[in-house]
């Protein structure tokens, strides 16, 4: 089994719109966070490229270099998206997994993120910042809450 961090929030949009904003506009709403930095460089711009099955989640840095955060494992608009997630500091063979679901609740959409396997980051790895599992996973949950909040703000035209 792996650890699991799940967070959910409602956004004011249909699932189709929320899915589109999450994927096509990730470069606009993404909030880089030092604790979960993807590369040692200044944060770049994220994009799903190409958008759809077989795509990748990439980050284009200021110097033009591209870092691959992960690959798309499931692309099922408007309800579900799964991609792998790795940070540059991770051991080469370590991939964690992120599942995003979009579920209609009345006129809103409940956007949930489940990030699995982050506890596999080794104890001495820089990406862990010395945190024990529970603290690390709690911070990861807050990180994803901030991301979904940013999606919610983007949906409202923020």
């Amino acid at each position: 089994m792996t650890s699991k961090v799940y967070v959910a929030l409602r956004v004011r949009a249909t699932p189709a719109r929320a899915f589109a904003v999450f994927t096509a506009e990730i470069g606009d709403w993404w909030r880089p966070q030092g604790l979960f930095q993807t590369t040692p460089r200044a944060p770049g711009r994220l994009a799903f490229e190409p958008a759809g099955d077989g795509g990748r989640l990439i980050e284009t840095l200021a110097n033009g270099k591209v870092f691959e955060i992960g690959s798309v494992l499931a692309w099922e608009p408007p309800s579900r998206l799964v991609f792998s997630w790795r940070q540059a500091a991770f051991p080469p063979d370590l991939h964690t997994e992120v599942e995003v679901c979009f579920e209609a609740v009345g006129e809103e959409t409940r956007v949930s993120v489940e990030h699995r396997g982050f506890e596999r980051v080794p104890a001495e790895n820089a990406a862990r910042h010395g945190f024990p599992d529970q603290a690390l996973l709690a911070r990861l949950a807050e990180f994803w809450q901030a991301q979904i909040r940013a999606v919610g703000a983007k949906v409202l035209g923020g």
């Binding site: 792996t2 650890s3 699991k4 961090v5 799940y6 967070v7 929030l9 529970q134 996973l137 709690a138």
Partner: peptide
Amino acid sequence: FELVMLIEDDQGNLAH
């Protein structure tokens, strides 16, 4: 009530 956060350890135990 709506679940907004769930953290489980690698044994599937609820942590928070």
